[in-house]
Design a protein around this nucleic acid. Structure first.
Lengths: 259, 259
DNA sequence: CAGTGGTCTAGACCACAAA
DNA sequence: TTGTGGTCTAGACCACTGG
């Protein structure tokens, strides 16, 4: 046929190609970690133009089935089992046993956890954080930003914000490693007895910086979780702002059927 | 320059165009609901080829800034304020006041809620559901599938699954409208006193059918929530499987700092 | 009908990675 | 240097929407 040839079938060519490759992945013919045929080869195999193959590949990428690397090739994604996050991870008994929350969690999930501290120091509180802490926006607070890995793969990035008057007498929270049980253990040792936590969960697409930080494909979804730690006095002594790779986590909650 | 001209600057042309349009949207120059200049006009205005403009537009779409409609044009998204979902919506006092959960919720969020019942009837329980109900996979259960709207816009689709022996004596749950307080009120009237709920939250990209059902752009994220309703006997008497448009919701949880 | 976005072609050149 | 994916062109035709 002449140039300018166009799909006349029900579904677009690029979707057919994507579906074909997806079937090969699901059937195991293309195993996790395997390299996907190059675009040049797909062009030949399916007899289409480059743009069409590229759209098919883009489709597989947003479907989280493959990852593409400039200059190297495309690879079938190996989907690590998800981590379950439940409120249990903040149990005081875990803290007293010297476990930080992420470690208490990792025990049940399998996989080797690790943390990198990206920043610890004074910061001007962003508006939403300041609001939750009950402080004027821009007030100086202590920020602790860290990135969590699982089997060496970044899965989560969290920033804790603590009011300055709370932390100024707790030297450990300025250190990279705040010691056994994490910062919540340190807060309780210094008279800030924790009564409850509140969490707000949102989901959205990753921003450009987030795709870099968590090595996500563009267009990948993230879970944005903001947690307030509240003392028995009713004061919010910490706000933790977390971005998680959505495909890595299931969040579990439990609440009573109250009157 | 000759044909085959190519980006040599740091960031790609299509990203520059997308950023330019995004700035116009954020500044209000392109107001919510306004029509975005047609692709043909953007081609002229920026002096690029069609493919480049289309990639820029695709970028804005995945950034949730615009919606595109075949044959009509592209429009700046009007972001309705999000709905907050908290465990409070299941309070028994709400049920006794005759309010279903979604209504109790809508009161606080603003916007006019509505529901369409898509299906009520017997179904073979899907594996994950059967597992939660403590039944063999494929057991016949009652399914209630409905779609929720807000100001006429679909936001959420939920399917409840109930064991047959629980519902067989409760005629109201087979009706489209189960009566004041919803099915939880009916369950409690028939001796199934609810003790607690558990919810599992995941986020992922919408599937093709979900984009249709919730009128989402392709590549839009959804929240997948599965809730178990548990009686004082410890039995799971309902599993509710919900898909929500991620940009419409914030989920709030609260839990004690237990020992 | 004219105008819109959606798909597709058949190339080109660029940027990156590995041998 | 070779091969990979990423960007871009300058068109074409198709499918949908509205007047």
């Amino acid at each position: 046929m002449a140039s300018g040839e166009v799909a006349s079938s029900a579904t677009a060519k690029y979707l057919q190609i994507a579906a074909d490759l997806a079937a090969q992945i699901k059937s195991g013919a293309l195993a996790p970690g395997a390299i996907v045929p190059s675009e040049a080869e797909l062009i030949q195999r399916y007899g289409v133009a480059s743009g069409t193959v590229r759209k098919a590949v883009a489709e597989l990428r947003t479907a989280q089935l493959i990852e593409t690397y400039h200059g190297r090739g495309s690879f079938v994604r190996s989907r690590p089992p998800v981590q379950r996050k439940s409120a249990d991870r903040f149990r005081r008994t875990h803290r007293q046993a010297g476990k930080a929350a992420y470690l208490a969690e990792a025990e049940a999930s399998g996989g080797v956890p690790s943390v990198t501290v990206l920043f610890v120091g004074p910061t001007a509180a962003p508006p939403e954080i300041a609001d939750r802490l009950g402080l004027p926006a821009g007030t100086q607070v202590l920020a602790r930003k860290r990135r969590y890995f699982r089997d060496g793969v970044p899965t989560e990035e969290a920033t804790s914000y603590l009011p300055w008057d709370v932390v100024k007498d707790i030297p450990e929270v300025f250190a990279e490693n705040p010691g056994g049980g994490g910062i919540y253990a340190r807060l309780e040792e210094h008279g800030h007895s924790l009564a409850e936590f509140t969490e707000s969960v949102r989901a959205r697409l990753a921003t450009k910086p987030e795709t870099k930080a968590l090595t996500l494909s563009p267009g990948a979804p993230v879970i944005h979780l903001v947690r307030d730690a509240i003392t028995t006095d009713g004061r919010v002594v910490e706000v933790c702002d977390t971005i998680m790779a959505a495909d890595q986590f299931v969040l579990d909650y439990r609440f009573p059927a109250r009157d």
